[in-house]
Structure formats: C-alpha cells, structure tokens
Design a protein around this nucleic acid. Structure first.
Length: 295
DNA sequence: ATTGTACTTTGACTTCCTGG
DNA sequence: CCAGGAAGTCAAAGTACAAT
C-alpha cells in the first residue's frame, strides 16, 4: 500500500467537526498529512508517537496536540497499540464571529515550537468535559448544533490559551521523544525541510549524516511513518501549492523551484497528492477566493 | 544496533502526442 | 507556446531476510 494515492483533498466543507475514534491494534492515519484546517487532537487513552513538522512527540493519555493549518503531521504506532482519541477540526471561517484581534489571541493556542500541551488531571477534566459536549452536539445534530460547536470551539481555544499561559516553560523538551534515533531522524527531517529545493537522494543524505542508506531508509520509515521519497514529495508539493497560490510563476518554474527536474513528473506527483493538476489547483484557488476589491 | 544482499516496486525523466 | 496525458526506460528506493 502506498498510503495516499487516491484520496481526495477537497477544501473542507465544514467549519467545525468533532470526531471520536477508538482503535484496537496497530494503526496509522490513512488520511491527509497536511490540510487547510486546524486540528486539535486529544488522546483519551493509550499512547502514540506523533510526528509534527520535524519532531517526534511521545503522546500520552491526557495530552492535547494542536496542529496549525498546513503543518505536516502523522501519528505513528508506539509500543502500545490501542488508543482512543478525540479530534476537533476547524477552518478559519469558524472564527468569523470574532474580531481579527481576538482571532489572533485564540490562535495563540497554536504554537509551532510546542504543539503539545500536557494537561494536569484537573485540566484534563475541564477539557474532556468541553470536548464531550462538542461531541454530543456533533452527534445529535439538533437544530443550531453548528452554532453551538462554534461557540464551544471559542471556549475551548480560550481555555487552551490560558493553560498555555500558565505553563511558563515549554514542555516540548520533556514530551519530545528522548530516543536518540528520533533525534537523528529529526535532524534529517529538518535538513530535508531546508533543502527540498535541491537534489536530494537517500544516498546523498546518508553521506551527510554518516549512516548507511539502507539503514536510513528503514529508520526514516519507522520513525516518521513516511517513506523518504513520500515525505520529500509531500514537502515539495506543499511548497508548490504556496507558489501556485501566491505567485504567477509558470508551472515549469514552480516545478524547478521546489526541486523537481521535470514538469511532467512534477504534474504527476502533484496530482497524486492533491488530486488536482497544478493548473487546476491554481484555478480553483483563484475562483474560491473573493474577487479581491481590497487590492 | 547497524550493515549488506537480493529482490521487487516505485520514481525520475524522456519522448511523443493531444488540445487550448 | 504551454499544460499535461501515455508509455517506456533506467535508476533509486523500499524491504524481507541474513550477517556481524
């Protein structure tokens, strides 16, 4: 299985969505690894390793993980396979009711440098209470449930911002897996994130990091959940999406800029990840956007 | 824990072709 | 001219298994 080959990556039709899932046995997300919406992940039971951006976090029961939009992430099995989690996904539009100043405050709950908040038991109770209310609304779908969900979301974000404020020290170091292998891969991922526009191969990487290419290949997969090429393509396509949105660069220029030597191959890879060709992607983005009057 | 072998699968890139 | 699909080739990556 190749992970993401055929799934659709359409723009999210929801504002706020709550999902609960309980997994038995080993499991890794069969879903998109980055997306336009924000994600709040709360682990009710079990343990998971969570790859976010360029680090691996050992997530325990009662941890809350906040994924900013378009950040690459993936959960990976840890030694304990069973787990239970709650997921809150929401889009920028879900925060339309508040002013931009308030929005900025709410989004302080998301911190790229420490995406994980380890909650004290009494904090867990508060958060779980709120999340359960959200889940009930989501499931019952009584009239106005969407309004409730948005209201609860605001409450949740305020709560998280306050909790973050109280926790003065960044807990990233303690939550980050102390496994030296993880640190090694983390370094390598950071290297890839910074050098994706150049030619990168398993062999060149293995030379810069003094590790055999065979071992690197297997280690990378085990730790991040991604194959090397799979990850590299993901990063390149993600960057290409930015360029297609934000610039008028020609497709061929975009391809070269993000590290693809051939446009044809770029197009194919882009489509396999986003389900749209680069030009279609640019078109849908431009038509989705309000015909800007502000300049 | 780390590397290598041997094998299969996938990727990278070409070339040629279609259509706007 | 530009975007992109199809098919083919060779190289690289991925992996089950073995060895150190």
């Amino acid at each position: 299985m190749t992970g993401y080959s055929t799934h659709k990556v359409k723009s999210a039709p929801f504002l706020v969505k709550v999902t609960h899932s309980k997994r038995r046995g080993h499991f890794t997300m069969p879903v998109q690894h980055y997306h336009e919406h924000y994600e709040i992940y709360y682990l009710l039971n079990g343990e998971r390793n969570y790859f976010i951006q360029d680090r691996i976090y050992a997530i325990k029961k009662g941890d809350i993980v906040l994924i900013y939009k378009n950040v690459v992430h993936r959960t990976i099995d840890s030694s304990i396979p069973d787990h239970e989690r709650l997921l809150v996904d929401f889009t920028d539009e879900a925060l339309n009711a508040v002013s931009s100043k308030e929005r900025a405050l709410l989004l302080q709950a998301f911190d790229m440098n420490s995406p994980v908040i380890r909650l004290e038991p009494y904090e867990q109770i508060m958060v779980e209470h709120l999340l359960n209310k959200m889940l009930q609304e989501e499931q019952a779908k009584a009239p106005g449930y969407n309004i409730c969900l948005r209201a609860y979301l605001l409450e949740l974000l305020v709560l998280l911002v306050r909790l973050r404020g109280q926790k003065r020290k960044s807990l990233a170091e303690t939550i980050e897996a102390s496994d030296p292998l993880h640190q090694k891969i983390s370094e390598i991922v950071q290297y890839i994130n910074g050098h994706y526009s150049q030619e990168l191969s398993l062999t060149t990487l293995s030379k810069t990091f003094y590790i055999s290419p065979y071992y690197l290949s297997r280690l990378f997969k085990r730790v991040t959940g991604f194959n090397f090429v799979e990850y590299l393509n993901l990063i390149r396509v993600k960057e290409a999406q930015k360029l297609l949105q934000g610039t008028d660069m020609k497709i061929i220029e975009v391809a070269q800029r993000v590290g693809f030597g051939s446009v044809a191959h770029f197009g194919r890879t882009f489509k396999s990840i986003t389900s749209l060709s680069p030009s279609d992607y640019r078109k849908t983005f431009k038509s989705t956007r309000e015909p800007a009057t502000e300049g």
